[in-house]
Amino acid sequence: MSDAVQSVTIVEVGPRDGFQSVGPFIPTPHKIALIGRLHAAGLRRMETTSFVSPSALPQMADAAEIVAATDRLAGLDAQVLVPTARHAERAFAAGATHLSAVLSVSERHNMGNVRRTPMESVADYAQMVAMMPAGAAMRLNLATAFDCPHVGRIGADAVLALLDPLVAATADVEIALCDTTGRADPAQVRALFAAARDRFPEVRGWAFHGHDTYGLGAANVLAAWDVGIRVFDASVAGLGGCPFAPGATGNVATEDLVWMFDHMGVASGIDLDRLVDAARAVAELPGAQIGGRVRDALAARARKAAA
């Protein structure tokens, strides 16, 4: 198959990973409107919200309302993040049909997030798998798969060892290896995905969740693409930030990936002009920490053309 007819799936995580980094509460109707603009730009997979403790993360307190609203968007595959089986129950009760479970390879990071060891989270994940109703889908996010803010670089052996019991729970899952800190490099990304796919050929699909903290977000995406990964998370306007590198940007920007793949002749199904318009609206959110380069480059080109 030639590059001209290849396609990529971009999962928009701004409404979850991006919005949760914004301090001031974003009014629910405004969130829904922004999700609608992203949908109108052609995005058909989004991580729209997360079911977590409202006291721990007030920005996500309207998760049930978001699920109800996004269910009305035609053709949208809306996944919701759930860190534990208890929150998975809440998500299913609200009508969610695509869960996005998360646990960390790093014990220290996992303890900080959910007060469990990784193996305790594996057991909790197995409970989520067991409670899934017919027709529901599962996505597994493996955080700190490349680097941990507390202990540094994570070895491939640790990732593969944790994947053993997770894949045993179900292979009918999409597994995202996550560069939580943005400190991964293309060689590391390429090697880990190659090793994981070789060891677990039965897994339904693989994805990459990258951050752009050190400017390697798009490069790491391309490294994963080179070894056959075709699903990538990204956040509109690079919304997200990184708490471990104050002042640095967070998630790789959706518009940067769309621009890159468009110029590679890889179809994303996303209208870049509409996406950039949505990104500009997102960039205006009070308290938003944004990133990305394409949005500013296109604006500069437009100013020059107008002059």
Score class of each variant (00 low, 15 high):
Arg90Cys: 05
Arg90Lys: 15
Arg90Gly: 02
Ala91Ser: 07
Phe92Arg: 06
Phe92Trp: 14
Ala93Asn: 03
Ala93Leu: 04
Ala93Asp: 03
Ala94Glu: 04
Ala94Tyr: 09
Ala94Val: 12
Ala94Met: 07
Gly95Lys: 08
Gly95Ser: 10
Gly95Thr: 13
Ala96Gln: 10
Ala96Tyr: 04
Thr97Cys: 00
Thr97Val: 14
Thr97Asp: 00
His98Leu: 05
His98Ala: 07
His98Asp: 03
His98Ser: 12
Leu99Trp: 11
Ser100Leu: 06
Ala101Asn: 05
Ala101Gln: 00
Val102Leu: 08
Val102Arg: 01
Leu103Asn: 04
Ser104Arg: 07
Ser104His: 08
Ser104Lys: 10
Val105Ser: 02
Ser106Gln: 08
Ser106Thr: 11
Ser106Ala: 06
Glu107Cys: 06
Glu107Asn: 12
Arg108Thr: 15
Arg108Trp: 10
His109Trp: 14
His109Thr: 08
Asn110Lys: 12
Asn110His: 11
Met111Ile: 12
Met111Asp: 11
Met111His: 14
Gly112Tyr: 14
Gly112Leu: 09
Asn113Thr: 11
Asn113Phe: 15
Val114Thr: 15
Arg115Met: 11
Arg115Cys: 09
Arg116Pro: 01
Arg116Asp: 02
Pro118Glu: 05
Pro118Val: 07
Pro118Phe: 10
Pro118Ala: 06
Met119Lys: 03
Met119Leu: 09
Glu120Asn: 03
Glu120Gln: 15
Ser121Gln: 07
Ser121Pro: 03
Val122Arg: 03
Val122Phe: 06
Ala123Ser: 08
Ala123Asp: 08
Ala123Tyr: 02
Asp124Phe: 06
Asp124Ser: 04
Asp124Val: 06
Asp124Pro: 04
Asp124Gly: 08
Tyr125Ser: 01
Tyr125Asn: 00
Ala126Glu: 03
Ala126Phe: 00
Ala126His: 04
Ala126Met: 01
Gln127Ser: 04
Gln127Arg: 14
Gln127Phe: 00
Met128Tyr: 07
Met128Phe: 04
Met128His: 03
Met128Asn: 01
Val129Thr: 02
Ala130Thr: 02
Ala130His: 02
Ala130Asp: 02
Met131Phe: 08
Met131Asp: 00
Met131Asn: 01
Met131Pro: 00
Met131Thr: 02
Met132Leu: 15
Pro133Gln: 06
Pro133Arg: 10
Pro133Ile: 10
Pro133Phe: 14
Ala134Val: 13
Ala134Gln: 12
Ala134Lys: 12
Ala134Gly: 13
Gly135Met: 09
Gly135Trp: 09
Gly135Glu: 02
Gly135Ile: 11
Ala136Leu: 04
Ala136Thr: 15
Ala136His: 15
Ala136Ser: 15
Ala137Val: 13
Ala137Arg: 15
Met138Thr: 07
Met138Trp: 06
Met138Tyr: 07
Met138Ser: 07
Met138Phe: 10
Arg139Gly: 03
Arg139His: 15
Arg139Phe: 14
Arg139Lys: 11
Arg139Val: 13
Leu140Tyr: 08
Leu140Gly: 05
Leu140Asp: 01
Asn141Arg: 10
Asn141Phe: 14
Asn141Gln: 06
Leu142Ile: 15
Ala143Cys: 12
Ala143Thr: 13
Ala143Pro: 08
Thr144Trp: 12
Thr144Tyr: 12
Ala145Pro: 12
Ala145Phe: 14
Asp147Asn: 13
Cys148Glu: 09
Cys148Val: 13
Cys148Leu: 10
Cys148Phe: 13
Cys148Tyr: 14
Pro149Lys: 09
Pro149Gln: 09
His150Cys: 06
Val151Gln: 10
Val151Arg: 08
